[in-house]
Nucleic acid binder design. Structure first.
Lengths: 337, 337
DNA sequence: CTTTCGTGTGAAAGCGCTTTTACAACCTCT
DNA sequence: AGAGGTTGTAAAAGCGCTTTCACACGAAAG
């Protein structure tokens, strides 16, 4: 048990009120008194109990972060961004994770008890009315990698733009017959990437045949199966665009196992730019997502909202920020590596 | 602002003390009264304020976790383990990160203010006297991937055993001239892996020549340089053991760029079993570290200590747990893939 | 020399909860 | 029927802090 504000007061020969005022630079305290209090704080190695403070202040300087429970570390970059923003602003970071598509939202209760001042939700399936409840309580919320309602601010990578850009790149190679391996169907990530692909094709007078859309699920295995399926066809596409790197790598594996050369016989590209993309052979052309930035900016936004208390509950200005992706040109599309 | 215990009391027609007793299953409450209180809690959607509770209880059901600020996501698996253990035990997780070798320990102050009940420190350079202060305050601490003092419990991967095992495997291939690319010199990880390697060699009547120990730093780039250095020698070693996968992959890159085939001309193995090890070509033989388990068990241990308050401050029984690593045999050592 | 005003500080209430203390109400014996 | 035990509950103190309120003091004004 460390020293309390009471100990400091006694040591400095003042009242606890004065110590508190020194601590918070509230009101005016005589310079000499302040000096004395500061010395006592130093001497006793005093540090104000955040919980007592939270109770008295009705705010806790704590940011709640929810991330999906995934077995890869894809989301960790986002956490780093959020952590940096929180630390920067003098906030603590309380973390909860939960299964990606769980209906039960433990963290909502957790965060309510813990009185987090704001929340960042990463790729979490949540209903708008649950969020409204939180927001109406004065706790600003921001979504990352998810966008369920216009009234809740969100930060996402520009999946559409990324999908379009990488498709344009494939078209630039002269490929006209393209195939797409989908992610889980209902996710906006998957849909937007596909939309981007279609947009690029259409702009070039090309189109994506329905039969060249292969069902995948973002997980390893489905990329492999999709490639097998394509190889059963009389005619191979020129290039495959997989909704994420994991499936792209898997597809390449299947193709090579059947004697096809990538990118010479068929090009394959992915999405995400996971670390591994640089190390597979051939190195994988893909779209980089600004994960760190996403986390950083989302957290900064929500903390700023908090500081300008005014508009927390105003659904009016809920920006939906799209951060640009970057095309990472490597070997698997046919470019020199 | 949610309902308070006072609101519940009024709604149920009892005193707040009774509500508290129901909440904590303390003392006996008449079944009928309990029922009534429970209903009111339900009706008002009441959830006890964790901060008020923390203040009254002098404990906060919060576990503090410190992880190094690294730009790769290597430590994320540990975080998952810790998070699972915390959730399981009904604890919240407060996360702080800091530069790997920073002298300044923000988190100590942070955690003191926040009154975390226990702390898990991952790969953090910290002085024993700083920890003693914390521990003497009754906050149990456990170290992961670090072991600064016998009086503080720690969880580590068995780097020695892992280094020995993979070296034995190389020897089994018939390789006798081995080289080692070091990590940052002073880390125990690096030292133990090297010790393990030496041990295996000595047991087979072999030895590691000093000139075959190349200075690396765990970072990409140094593996590349070390391989270049080796290729300048009149005679190549049969195999290279790099202190981590990153450097191993980099070394392979350098070797291949100079026309050497891995593993035919020279074998290369790593340590860590990062995700990428499965995707490089050739796939990388390496040592898997039980990261999730490390985090899980460390957190479980520290929370158990907390529950059996007795021995928190007793330096007597501070177990130093070594979790076994697993050899991941892939292609880069010369085995069939 | 009294009145007014600003300045600095102490006393005390309150944040939401846990826990101790005290005491009614009801039983169970003799 | 009264003494002695249980049981269930209310009342109140306390956790460490912030903040309001009031007030003492000295300076400026009348």
């Amino acid at each position: 048990m460390g020293a309390t504000i009471f100990d400091v007061a006694k040591h400095a020969g003042v009242s606890i009120g004065t110590v508190s005022r020194v601590l918070n630079n509230r009101d005016r305290v005589h310079p000499k008194t302040r000096e004395r209090v500061l010395k006592s704080i130093e001497a006793l190695n005093f540090s104000a109990n955040a919980y007592a403070r939270g109770l008295a202040n009705q705010q806790t300087d704590t940011l709640g972060l929810v991330i999906p429970q995934v077995n890869d570390s894809f989301y960790f970059e986002i956490v780093r961004g959020v952590e940096d923003a929180a630390t920067e602003a003098g906030y603590r970071l309380l973390i909860a994770s939960q299964p990606r598509h769980s209906e039960e939202h433990r963290y909502l209760d957790l965060f309510q008890r813990s009185y987090v001042d704001a929340m960042v939700l990463v790729a979490i399936d949540v209903h708008i009315y649950e969020l409204r409840e939180v927001i109406d309580r004065g706790v600003p919320v921001v979504l990352v990698h998810q966008n369920i309602d216009k009234s809740v601010p969100s930060f996402q990578a520009d999946n559409f733009g990324g999908g379009r850009e990488i498709t344009q790149h494939l078209i630039g190679h002269g490929y006209t017959r393209l195939a797409y391996i989908t992610g889980t169907d209902h996710t906006p990530d998957n849909r937007d990437r596909l939309r981007g692909m279609r947009d690029a094709l259409n702009s070039s007078g090309l189109s994506l045949e329905e039969t060249n859309i292969l069902a995948g699920d973002f997980l390893p295995g489905s990329g492999y199966r999709a490639a097998l399926e394509l190889m059963r066809r009389p005619e191979l596409p020129h290039a495959i665009f997989a909704a994420n790197d994991q499936m792209a790598v898997d597809a390449i594996k299947a193709l090579r196992e059947h004697g096809l050369r990538v990118p010479d016989d068929i090009a394959v590209v992915g999405f995400d730019d996971v670390l591994m993309a640089q190390y597979v052979s051939p190195t994988l052309t893909t779209v980089h997502q600004p994960l760190y930035e996403l986390g950083l900016q989302a957290a900064q936004m929500v903390l700023t909202t908090l500081q300008n208390q005014e508009n927390v509950r105003s659904p009016a200005l809920a920006p939906s920020v799209l951060l640009p992706t970057t095309l990472k040109i490597r070997q698997s599309c046919g470019c020199k590596g």
